[in-house]
Every structure is written in structure tokens, then in C-alpha cells.
Design a protein around this nucleic acid. Structure first.
Lengths: 255, 255
DNA sequence: GTCTCTGTTACGCTTATCGTAACACCTAGC
DNA sequence: GCTAGGTGTTACGATAAGCGTAACAGAGAC
């Protein structure tokens, strides 16, 4: 008895699964040592060592001269291929860039992944002061304008996505589940969500859902900007632009 | 007896290795079916099915509604992380872009990988007629200007990198191993290589090596352009620019 | 000196993974 | 109608691949 996998363990090759876990660990902690990676994944050192050797042999991971691990060239090739194969990203990227250029602010594409929102595409303007964004960064679903992802979910699924305790990021974060529910209804009716510093102080974020042909929510696109240079008139304008572009992404996906 | 792995099989977790092989197969043949992927990897269908299910569970692969497979969101996240973790790419990318803007032509960064040259970074100008480039694309080491990668290798390693038979891509491809050896010596002396349509007709490519502190070759950067708009004076200018930038990459890597 | 970290190797137990076989479901051919 | 040759999928028992334990060497710390 070495695994406690009593639930949906079947159909999954555990060696491969742990190998991927090691790969993701390297991706999240560049220049980590073997021991650190073993701790992070909760596996034994010999096991992770075997995994890393295999990953290195495939070029997904590189061992530095100091003995620490980083992602390798194959990971770059894989990621580039992925951005052309994932329809959503391929379609959204030029639209995000065009929109970002137009408003001269940061734009993002986010999806629901594992009860969080996950950034899978972005554009940042060149101006000095701008909102920083990063592909792969996760944020809660219940705070900030990414709430739109929640708002357009069927009620039964929605409930599963909201954790028991809602962390308070700023003074304006909604931490009451009932109030959150009411807010989600309002968002659904309006078709957009504006966050005034709910996650980060002094930051305004406007999100709009990208819907499939059947009205189910696929993703969200948003504009994020410093509050001091964003007037109410800007926000109104952003909402209109986002809605147009969200529709364009939908049709670009074939609907 | 199910594997014939008599050589360096040890130290490698085969389940993980085959799983990665399946992943790379998906990356190379988007929208492939299970049977196709099993054939491509030379494994049985049930085995590949198990691998794909595990990869899907981790988000590296997505199964479309028609039952075919594509890369998934995790692959995008992984690739983005990789481009910030691989020093060479991180350092070279802005330099490649600056150079490409300056000459208004396509620029590339290539390394040796598995006896081939592999493109791991690139820039393409916006003009209508330009040389197309793709991260992940492989080219032979013995043809075109990528020969610089060979030329700066220690002679013993160099020999291992040159295949028995040299494929003839165009009329100008060198297919004689002796002639190739002489050419490599000339390149090493000159510090650069110019290809006049050795791989593709009507294409000129200029490459220069990126050297480590000890003079060993790390990578090559190149400019690729249509022959009709590239004068000898342009080529001379490209060589100078490339040499400067190659040195800048070297120092950017800490040397 | 010991103590505690590293990374690494060896080896025997056992369980996870494998391939075979059989399954159901197609479309094509005729 | 019936094969015939494709899919993708599931079941199961045999086996060897992969596991953890243990022990190793080396590097600091103090």
C-alpha cells in the first residue's frame, strides 16, 4: 500500500502523472534543487530524480551546472505549438492586442481552471506605468471583475466554484456569500463587471464574458488600468469595446 | 520481454517517456486520432489511451468533441514559463527583434538538437513578402548557413553530427563530405556563413555563431531574406550586425 | 568533532502497468 | 443483407517496471 488514491485514481498512469507534477514544479520554482522539488510534489527524492532524468532526456527540463533544474527547449517548442493549437488563444490574441493598443492599457484572456481563473493570453502596452500581467497566473473567481466567469455559470455549477471562506484582499472585496450571489445576478443582467480595487488597491478592471453559441461561458476578456487615470466615461467606453470584441471572438470560434 | 531497450535504457522511467512521446506526437499532429497517435509513437492503442487520459487530466492535452486530440492550456502556460527560464531565449529575444526591425527581415536563433538545428526564437517583420519562420522547426546542420553550428564544433564531435548521406535540397547544396569539410574550415576562419539558396531557392541566409567564454558554440543567429532584394553590400552589413549582436548575447549570458 | 543537509546508487518486494483479447460501433463494399 | 476493416474502449491476468528503504559520499554549519 503506497498510494491512498481511493477515488478517481483509475485510468491514470501514475508514473506519468507524477512526472508531470515534477515538470510543473520546475515550471513554478525555477532553479529549484532536487530536494525542494521532492518536497513540493510530496514524493521521494529517488522517484523525482528518476522523473527529472527522464524529463531532461526529452529536453523538457535542463539541469544547470549548479545542479538546479529549469525548463528546457522542448518546453518552448511545446508552448509555441500550443498557442497555435488552442483555438481560443489563437483567435483571441490579435483581438486582445488590437484592443490593448486602442485603449493603451493591459488586456487579458482568462478561463476557469480548477476553480480559479487562469490567464492564458495577454497584451501589455509599452507605456511606463501599466498593470502587470502574466500568462499562467491564477486568481480567485469570486473577487475582482473575473466574477463574470462565475456569473454566467449555471447555478448548480456556480455553487461548487465558490469556496467556503472568501479571502479579503482589500476593503472592497466581497466576503459574504449572500452578497456575492446578489452581485452575480446583477452582473449577469448587465453583461459585464467592473472591479474598483477589489483585489488590488488603486486598480480598476473591467471584464466581459466570451459566450458559446448556447450561451455558456467560455472565457472572459478584461481591461485592467490604474484607477487614477480611468474616468467613468473610460469605463463606459471599455465596456462597449469589450462586448464587441467578445462577440468577435465568439464568431471567430465558429459561432 | 516487452522492451528491447538494451542500451542506455536505465535511469529512465519508461511510462513517463512514452507519455512525453505521446505529448510530442499530439504537438506535431494536431487533431490526430488515438489510432494515428498510437501508430506515430509505435505503441499500442490502450497504452496511448491511458497516456492521453493522464495528459488530459493535467490539462496538457484536450480532447475535441470529435474525439481528436490537441495541446491544452497547461502547455501554453508551460511554454510561457519556459521562455523566461531559458537564458538563451530570454536574452536573445529582444536582440533578435531589434535586429529584425533594423534590417526589416526575418531573424532566428538556432541551436543544435539531436543532430539537427532547431529554431527556438525568431522575429518576423511586418512587410508582406518575408521569409517564414517557426519555432520548433528543424533543419539539417550540413545545409544552408546553419553550417556555422557545425563549423565551430570540435572536429571529433563535428564528425558525429554529419550524416552518411547528404540530401540535395537545391542545385547549390553541398553533398560531398570532403567539400563540406573544406567549407567548414573556411567558415571557421571567416566567423560567419552565407547561404545563397542552399536549402531553398531564391533565399539568402546569413548566420553567425554565438560563442561561450571558452569559444565553444552555443547557438547561431541568422538573417534570412529573399535573394532579389539582397545586394552584396547588404550581406556585408548583415554580417557586421550579426557579429555585434552575437557578442551582445554572449555577454548577456554572463561572459 | 558531530549533525544535517545535500545528491546519488543499490536492491529486493510488490504493485502498477502492460498487451492480449474481446467488445461495441462505425462505414464501405457488394 | 452480410462481411471486412476500420474506429475507440474495457477487462484481466502475467510480469517486469518502478517503487521505497536503506546506505552511501560529500558539503557546510557550528
Amino acid at each position: 500500500m503506497q498510494t491512498k488514491s481511493l477515488l478517481i485514481s483509475s485510468e491514470i498512469v501514475q508514473s506519468l502523472d507524477v512526472g508531470i507534477a515534477a515538470l510543473m514544479a520546475v515550471s513554478q520554482m525555477p532553479d529549484a534543487t532536487l530536494s525542494e522539488l521532492a518536497r513540493k510534489t510530496g514524493e521521494t527524492k529517488p522517484r523525482i530524480l528518476r522523473m527529472l532524468r527522464t524529463l531532461e532526456h526529452r529536453g523538457l527540463v535542463r539541469k544547470s551546472s549548479e545542479g538546479t533544474y529549469r525548463l528546457g527547449n522542448t518546453a518552448i517548442v511545446l508552448g509555441t505549438a500550443a498557442s497555435t493549437q488552442v483555438d481560443l488563444v489563437r483567435v483571441a490574441n490579435p483581438i486582445l492586442e488590437r484592443l490593448g493598443q486602442k485603449v493603451n492599457e493591459t488586456t487579458q484572456l482568462r478561463i476557469i481552471d480548477n476553480r480559479e481563473s487562469l490567464c492564458i493570453a495577454k497584451f501589455e502596452p509599452t507605456r511606463d506605468l501599466r498593470v502587470h500581467s502574466m500568462i499562467g497566473r491564477r486568481r480567485p473567481l469570486y473577487a475582482g471583475s473575473y466574477k463574470v466567469l462565475l456569473a454566467f455559470l449555471p447555478p448548480s455549477v456556480q455553487a461548487q466554484m465558490i469556496p467556503e471562506t472568501l479571502l479579503k484582499f482589500t476593503e472592497r472585496t466581497i466576503t459574504n456569500r449572500v452578497k456575492l450571489g446578489a452581485e452575480l445576478q446583477r452582473i449577469r443582467a448587465a453583461g459585464h463587471c467592473v472591479s474598483h480595487g477589489e483585489v488590488s488597491e488603486q486598480l480598476i478592471s473591467v471584464s466581459v464574458p466570451v459566450l458559446a453559441f448556447d450561451g455558456s461561458v467560455i472565457a472572459a476578456i478584461n481591461i485592467a488600468a490604474p484607477a487614477f487615470r480611468t474616468q467613468d466615461s473610460d469605463i463606459e467606453r471599455y465596456i462597449g469595446l469589450l462586448k464587441d470584441d467578445a462577440r468577435e471572438i465568439s464568431t471567430g470560434l465558429g459561432w
